[in-house]
Design a protein around this nucleic acid. Structure first.
Length: 265
DNA sequence: GCGACAG
DNA sequence: ATCTTGTCGC
């Protein structure tokens, strides 16, 4: 992957073009249907009650940042037992970031250390290598349908789900705008269903706004990462939510911040 | 030109 | 993303 050796404050339009093409090439390997090493069992005639047989380990990844410092960060991987959601593994990696945050290019900033964390556990203890990974960032809910979750999934060849805490605007009509989501979608979720499919004027389905708890009105944004369908991704995320943010990601987040407290202050 | 924009 | 305690409410 093409990332600079030294910190680049403001990557050129030419560089961004190269990255966009790299994403498009990797996207040819993207699988947007269920291709899982465990079984999805539909119990309900409406397809709402779902069970996962043979699913034992779920991963969560995140990158947290050190205050007053654009370059120091900590990448984290946690593995949770399913369905108990107890954390059985955690690992951290201190990172020197080479790029700032640029919407649409998050993977080039964060994916490398996450891959290294996955390689570590794959070698050390393949028995608990996660069957699926929840990623702090989007998958197909992305201008080129290839966000961090998809990027990581393809490179590591592991099923992933994209989980966004905030909505990423995509240029595909008014139903994909921030204001539409904040008004129409949030109101719809408040009243009724658990999820709202995010579909643009082009007919493209980008992901879903999901109300993860009965008690919350602020949705999370779920999208296909790799080797899973959107509907399966949604039901799996719902099974991982003790709070608004699914446990694998919440744990990765909380623990990496704790790691930072203990090592940078 | 300005606005919009995951983490 | 991150700085942060209490507090209002079901």
């Amino acid at each position: 992957m093409s990332v600079p050796t030294v910190y680049d404050d403001n990557p050129s339009p030419a560089q961004r073009d190269i990255w966009a093409r790299e994403q498009s090439e990797l996207k040819s390997r993207l699988i947007e249907v269920d291709d899982l090493d465990f079984k999805k069992i539909i119990l309900d005639d409406k397809g709402e009650k779902v069970e996962f047989e043979g699913l034992h380990y779920i991963g969560g990844v995140d990158v947290s940042f050190v205050e007053n410092n654009e370059q120091d960060a900590v990448a984290s991987l946690v593995i949770l037992k399913y369905p108990s959601l107890e954390v059985i593994y955690e690992d951290f990696k201190m990172v020197k970031l080479k790029l700032p945050y640029i919407a649409g290019f998050l993977a080039f900033r964060e994916v490398q250390p996450l891959l290294e964390l996955l390689n570590t556990i794959r070698q050390a203890n393949p028995m608990i290598f996660p069957h699926i990974i929840l990623v702090d960032g989007n998958g197909t809910l992305h201008p080129r349908r290839f966000g961090l979750a998809s990027h990581l999934g393809v490179l590591a060849n592991v099923p992933t789900i994209g989980v966004g805490k905030n909505f990423l605007h995509i240029d595909d009509g008014e139903r994909m705008t921030m204001s539409y989501v904040k008004s129409v979608v949030k109101e719809a979720l408040r009243k009724g269903g658990n999820s709202h499919i995010l579909q643009g004027d082009s007919g493209m389905v980008w992901g879903a706004a999901v109300r993860s708890l009965e008690s919350t009105t602020n949705p999370i944004y779920i999208s296909v990462g790799h080797r899973i369908s959107l509907e399966t991704a949604i039901s799996m995320v719902l099974k991982c939510c003790r709070y608004r943010i699914p446990e694998p990601i919440r744990q990765a987040d909380v623990r990496s911040r704790e790691f930072i407290r203990n090592h940078f202050s």
